[in-house]
Structures are given as C-alpha cells and as structure tokens.
C-alpha cells in the first residue's frame, strides 16, 4: 500500500495536478507516525510512511493547506472523509483546492496496548498473518494483532469513503458498530456511579488541549478556551471546576458536528475516554431528533441549528431511564 501511495503521489506531482502532499512520516520511534507535508518525489521516497501505526486523521491540516497556492493531495481513510465533509460543510476548507485519494482504513495499532503487555524497548512491529512480531532491544516478542487494535478502530462505524476524487483499493460499507455500548452501560448506572466514574476520569486531565487541537470540528479561529478573560483559558487545574467546564463545553460545541473520528481519545496522554462524551450526544441526537451522522454529507442541516415545532421537551431527560 505504501508503495502504491508513493507512486500515486509522485505521478500527481509530476503531472502538475497537485503541488504538495499531506501524508505521514516517522517520528522519533518506529511507531511514532506523524503527519507531514511533502513537496518533491525525493522527499516522498525518503520519508513517506504508511503502516499499521498510521492512524492520524490529517483532514484538519487542510484548513491551512487548502488555502495555499496550488492543489493539495491528501490521503484519507474512510473515517477521515467524514471529517473532511464536515469541514467542507462549515466552509473551513476549500474543497476545490483538495485532491482526495481514498485509502483503506484500519484496524490500526495502539502502541500503548503493546507496551501494556510489559513489552519495552520496541524497535519495530510487523504484522505476520495477524500475529505481531515485535523486535525489541531485548529480543523478539509476539502478540495477537487484535489485542493491540486502537479503540477507535475496534468500534469503527464505516469503511465507506463519503468523499474522494480517486480510490486506491476497494470501497467498503457502513458498519453495524458497537460504538454506543459503553455509553449505554454508563446510562444504566446510578447517577452516583456515573458521578464517581467521571470524577476519576476527568480529574486526570492536564489541560494539554491536545484533544481540542486535534479535533477536526474544533477549528474556531478564536476558541473560547484561548480567551484569558473567560476564566477558563488553558492553565493548570487550580480550581476544582475548570476541567469539567472545558470538557462539557467542548463536547457541547461539537455536538452534532463531531464526526466520531476518535482522535480526541487517541491523542489524550491521560487516556480519558473522551469519545464517550461525544457519543452520548450522538446517541441522544439519534434517538431524539432522528439518525444523524455529521460528515455523512455536506448539505443536511445540523441538529442544533434546526428544530421542529413538535420536538420533545427537555423533561424527557427526567422521564426516561433508571436513576
């Protein structure tokens, strides 16, 4: 796949269709794959990487890149195309200036799950027929591929590209996903149990803002959390409420706009299950206002910018479920 992608990129650069390419290159470690921009065939050959750790959704980079001179080529997995659609819909990117090559999705690997097995000093990881062969400084280790799959891939909602100019490989379908299972489990707890769960999770937050920075729905030029006058700008948790405020408000801002790309949870250094907040909103929207998936198209009206005269009353929250 990496080979085919490099060739495609070189060809599109050579015939002048695009002037630069958004892809990924290796960071400090073999499994650190970070987004990068390439401008020449040489750069592509030297650094372009696409492997089992290439999970970063690069659609957000298009906000800046699509506004520069010349077309930009971007490789998008199915989940990433939802994000691009959403950005297009909100006029955050210039879709005409983007050339999308759809590539197959995961499942991708989560290095933390490998490390959690006590495997350290990792120098390379290979997938050999769904057994991971892991080279380390201390010798070779193996583990089953499916035990190291990223959470976001384990609850994938769609293998279908919702926007592309060209595809490498076959397109898939939307899937029956188990993505609301955990939300449901929480809903079935008592409110005290939920309170305790979220107290312990949200109290781990170090306000690095990575979840906001990576989120393709969080593209406001002036984010409320960067406003020093708001009292909730980025700072260490000095007050007992700030991180809660941050998470509730951020989740609310992306309600009806979150494409459920799973990036926020993936990048969180504290492993806070942020997707549960977003999925709670998605689940509520689906059940109260009709099935809606942000990014599935570029024309439908978002649920929070829309209404009907016979919407349910807020008291529905009180009427349903267990206490």
């Amino acid at each position: 796949m990496q080979e085919a992608m490099i060739n495609k990129a070189k060809q599109l650069l050579a015939d002048g269709t695009v002037s630069r390419v958004i892809g990924w290159k290796r960071g400090e470690f073999a499994y650190d794959i970070t987004p990068a921009v390439f401008e020449t065939a040489e750069e592509l050959e030297k650094d372009f990487v696409f492997d089992d750790f290439t999970s970063a959704n690069v659609s957000k980079y298009l906000v800046k890149e699509s506004k520069k001179e010349g077309k930009v080529l971007v490789f998008l997995k199915p989940c990433d195309t939802y994000s691009l659609n959403q950005l297009t819909k909100e006029h955050r990117v210039d879709r005409d200036n983007i050339y999308v090559v759809g590539i197959p999705g995961g499942p991708k690997l989560d290095i933390e799950k490998i490390k959690a097995k006590g495997i350290t000093g990792i120098t390379s990881v290979k997938n050999d027929n769904f057994t991971l062969k892991i080279e380390t400084l201390y010798g070779e280790e193996t583990m089953p591929f499916y035990e190291a799959v990223l959470d976001k891939c384990a609850s994938c909602k769609s293998k279908k590209h919702v926007t592309y100019d060209e595809l490498i490989g076959e397109d898939g379908d939307t899937l029956e996903s188990n993505r609301f299972d955990m939300v449901e489990q929480l809903e079935n707890m008592t409110s005290q149990e939920r309170y305790d769960f979220w107290r312990s999770e949200l109290s781990k937050c170090i306000r690095c803002n990575a979840c906001r920075n990576v989120c393709p729905a969080c593209t406001c030029e002036n984010c409320v959390f960067d406003n020093p006058a708001s009292g909730i700008d980025n700072k260490a948790p000095a007050d007992s409420f700030e991180e809660n405020m941050f998470h509730i408000i951020r989740a609310f801002h992306v309600a009806g706009r979150c494409t459920d790309c799973g990036e926020c949870s993936r990048v969180c250094p504290q492993h806070i299950p942020l997707h549960l907040l977003n999925r709670k909103f998605i689940k509520d929207i689906n059940s109260l206002y009709g099935e809606y998936q942000a990014g599935a198209d570029t024309t439908s009206r978002a649920p929070l910018t829309d209404y009907t005269a016979d919407d349910c009353e807020a008291s529905i929250v009180h009427e349903r479920g267990v206490e």
Binding site: L186, E187, S191, Q192, E193, R194, Y195, D196, F197, W198, R199, N244, I248, A251, F252, A255, L277, K280, F281, D284, I285, L288, Y289, P303, L304, T305, D306, Y307, T308, A309, D311, C312, E313, A314, I316, V317
Partner: peptide, 18 residues
C-alpha cells in the same frame, strides 16, 4: 425552539456526568 434542543441535550449530558 433552539433553547429546547440545546437544553435537552445539555441536561441529558449533566445527568450522564452524575
């Protein structure tokens, strides 16, 4: 009408948080 949708979702979220 917008209030109604927003508050329904927000209150549901607060409930979700305990």
């Amino acid at each position: 009408y917008f209030t109604r949708r927003r508050m329904t979702l927000l209150f549901s979220m607060l409930d979700f948080l305990g």
